[in-house]
Design a protein around this nucleic acid. Structure first.
Length: 341
DNA sequence: TTGCCTTTGAAGGTT
DNA sequence: AACCTTCAAAGGCAA
């Protein structure tokens, strides 16, 4: 976790969500669905720097203080004196508040539901929680998802009003990310699947995470990938929903993930496999065997009914190839999950 | 201390 | 147009 994230977490917690994980109700109380937008972009939270808007001294939630320590300006360097050296300019740039991206629908959903899932599942690892949340997201009804899309849309609107010149590109490079390896060919990927499967069978580096406490069963991240066994409660809704835009998640089939940390994925897959085996026993057949092979399944982007794409204005108007129905993907579970970008 | 993991969606860049 | 890359949140974990 980088520094800005830490700061933000601290900000979020201190801003009222004191029990970040202890009390599942707290999150909802402070970030209820209908107040998520306002809590982030409400006028009283407006960034002081934004022209024409009231200032309160309360930093905007989307703003994160610059990473660099603020050094006291030398007395000789008055702002009025405008012969700025490159160093000064650089410092000023560094001091520029970090305006964060507005949250998308899923992020808003996660924010609201995380604590609940944590409480239900006694899980804390976000990676696992997010898998569960991803699955829950796809199980949401269209109306429920629309609610979050609408919120996200408002967030974006408000964000663009507050920061008209802001671009998502501004934040590029703020997070240091491991360089992504070049995309492997499918042959290579298949090879890697096999290798990862081998790793799965042979070693598990990380300690196990308990996904399914016996007393409090919950959605397993495994099922999110193996959801052919565990299809959405309303498959038609999932298919119809632009949120689960019929296209399969091309990224999820990307083999890159296999190259990053196979042992970790193998570890996750171990749990997934265990979960799946029990699921498979329960679900008496059919679906899985009838599914086309994962990697060869074409993107059903074109199969998306245009009426559905166009219908509710609150849903995203566009679809990307990688926006998909992971619900339909699955299979070797974490072995085929989306790469680390 | 820092980056990865993991999810979906948005946005901007590249092919 | 299609594809690719990055970042948004979160907290445990590894280096």
């Amino acid at each position: 976790m980088n520094a800005s994230m830490s700061r933000q977490k601290a900000t979020v917690c201190s801003a009222g969500r004191q029990a970040c994980s202890l009390n599942p109700g707290v999150v909802i109380r402070f970030f209820p669905v209908h107040s998520l937008v306002s809590s982030r972009f409400s006028p009283h939270m407006v960034a002081p720097a934004h022209p024409g808007l009231p200032t309160s001294g309360i930093p905007h939630p989307a703003i994160v203080s610059p990473i660099v320590k603020q050094e006291p300006a030398p007395p000789s360097l008055s702002p009025a004196v405008s012969a700025k050296s490159p160093v000064t300019v650089k410092k000023e740039e560094e001091k520029k508040p970090h305006v964060k991206k507005p949250l998308n629908a899923f992020m808003l959903y996660m924010k609201e539901m995380r604590a609940k899932v944590v409480a239900e599942c006694t899980l804390k690892e976000s990676a696992a929680i997010n898998q569960i949340l991803g699955r829950k997201w796809h199980n949401l009804s269209r109306e429920e998802q629309a609610k979050y899309y609408e919120l996200a849309r408002k967030e974006r609107q408000l964000h663009s009003q507050l920061y008209p010149t802001w671009s998502a590109r501004d934040n590029y490079g703020k997070k240091k990310k491991r360089k992504r390896e070049k995309q492997l060919s499918q042959t290579q990927s298949q090879q890697q699947v096999q290798e990862a499967e081998g790793a799965l069978a042979s070693k598990s580096k990380k300690p196990c995470v308990q996904y399914l406490p016996p007393e409090k069963p919950c959605d397993s991240p495994a099922s999110s990938h193996g959801s052919m066994l565990d299809s959405p409660a309303t498959p038609s809704a999932a298919l119809a929903s632009p949120a689960a835009p019929a296209a399969t998640h091309s990224e999820q089939a990307q083999p890159l993930s296999l190259t990053t940390k196979p042992e970790t994925r193998a570890h996750l897959a171990l749990h997934s496999a265990a979960f799946l085996s029990s699921k498979a026993a329960a679900s008496s057949s059919g679906q899985m065997g009838s599914q086309p092979p994962l990697l060869s399944r074409p993107l059903p982007l074109g199969s998306m009914p245009t009426a559905l794409l166009a219908s509710p204005p609150s849903f995203p108007a566009t679809l990307h190839a990688h926006q998909s129905l992971p619900v339909l993907q699955a299979q070797p579970l974490s072995l085929v999950t989306k790469s680390a970008h």
